[in-house]
Write a protein that binds this DNA or RNA. Structure first.
Lengths: 233, 233
DNA sequence: AAACTCACTCGCACAGTGTGCGAGTTTTGT
DNA sequence: ACAAAACTCGCACACTGTGCGAGTGAGTTT
């Protein structure tokens, strides 16, 4: 374990000098664009500099290092998540809309999936979402730490459902894999793991994207039901 | 989108030549060791070669590229997950033990958290776990695709709960952050996001590790309750 | 007007990365 | 003994993040 000292953009002076109205947001915006186009590996300081018509190392005036830049872009995706007001639509509806929104955002920004396991979500946008979720679950009737447990449970489910989906999408983007070979491999697998066979047969009649969406909905009502049951005690 | 052709170690000839009983497993084992010691960034082909007393590029005889090596080590962690027999202990108990086992394995191999979002779990160990889970949920009473949805829901919850926990651990390993500064920042946050305040106050009286473990249990019973409810319809 | 300060830019260099290539070495098969 | 196959590895290439220190240009002070 490298004795790394914990540091985060968010745990520092509220602002850098940033006197000219110019650049940090611009950098983050360009970085997000680059990430959307080329993925996490496609983001390098040199490319980002070039995209902004700047030298590679100029960016280091606005950002301490690449990790800090990643913290900033990570919070940016939290900013895209929509949390409806539970007072207006009820907590279950609010939670459901939020869940689909979070899933959508991650699928649209696959690189964010990698960041979830690397950075804690401490930025203002993430805190805003957390705050709204807390309000939502309190409105549902949760109290004390149970409220936070409910938040963790729901976001956990959403992330855990979506992150592997990203992994799957990244490989099967336009699959070059021989379909016949794939099929025969599946058969071979089915022999060694007999319980999987039925699942394979059922799943291959549907569009995988649809299957995953249905699975998400199935899981979501389960989780919400489970949370609702906690309220009864 | 780079038109990457999908390829996986698992979708290829069942075996490389591998005539001498010697090396591929050994490489994977050493890689896992290196990963446990130094994390995902600490694994480089050169270091791995050195650890094995071999030249850096010698490994490429046994492994097509680094990604393939990662697929192999990824499946290795699936091999550490324990799935009890649902016929003996009942599906709820089996699911619960499995969940805690998966959480433990990921916390013990934090680098695996990054791989979940990058690679689909297609290795033999992963398939074995999936197979056992399918058996477990069928024993519970699920049928058809619902069985697969239940699997996705449970593993989704487990991963989604644990992956951010890994992120948090990686920063707060031995936190060098000024506690007073942290405190004052939290107060500032609490002003902007009032609903968070109660959560902060409650949480800071407990050991964060314990809080997260409790949250996991809370979420787990919720998810299992929710799944059980699906059986009623 | 001259001097100074300070926000900002960026080229160079260093240590490190994955990996293709092709020339070597060892082991195996006949 | 000879050939073929299995295996090793040094070199080179293009790339990475980033510390350093010299440069630029606008604004402020004297």
């Amino acid at each position: 374990m490298t004795g790394k000292t914990f540091s985060s953009v968010w745990l520092r002076e509220p602002r850098k000098p940033t006197s000219p109205g110019r650049s940090r947001e611009e950098i983050v915006r360009a970085a997000v664009e680059l990430l959307n186009e080329e993925g996490l590996d496609g983001l390098s300081m040199r490319k980002l500099g070039a995209k902004l018509g700047a030298g590679a190392t100029s960016l280091y005036w606005y950002v301490a290092n690449k990790d800090e830049l990643l913290e900033l872009v990570y919070d940016e995706v939290w900013g895209e998540m929509r949390v409806p007001d539970a007072d207006e639509v009820g907590w279950r509806e609010a939670a459901s809309v939020l869940a689909h929104s979070m899933r959508r955002v991650i699928l649209d920004h696959p690189w964010a999936a990698d960041l979830i396991g690397r950075l804690p979500a401490l930025g203002p946008n993430a805190l805003h979402v957390a705050n709204e979720m807390r309000k939502m679950f309190k409105q549902a009737g949760f109290t004390g730490l149970d409220t936070d447990y409910a938040i963790a449970t729901l976001t956990g489910f959403i992330f855990g459902m979506t992150i592997p989906e990203v992994a799957w999408n990244s490989t099967s983007g336009h699959e070059q894999v021989d379909l016949g070979e794939m099929r025969s491999l599946l058969l071979q697998v089915a022999r060694r793991f007999p319980h999987m066979r039925e699942g394979f047969e059922l799943a291959e009649m549907e569009d995988p994207r649809v299957v995953r969406a249905v699975a998400f909905d199935f899981g979501l009502v389960s989780v919400l039901d489970g949370l609702e049951r906690r309220l009864a005690t």
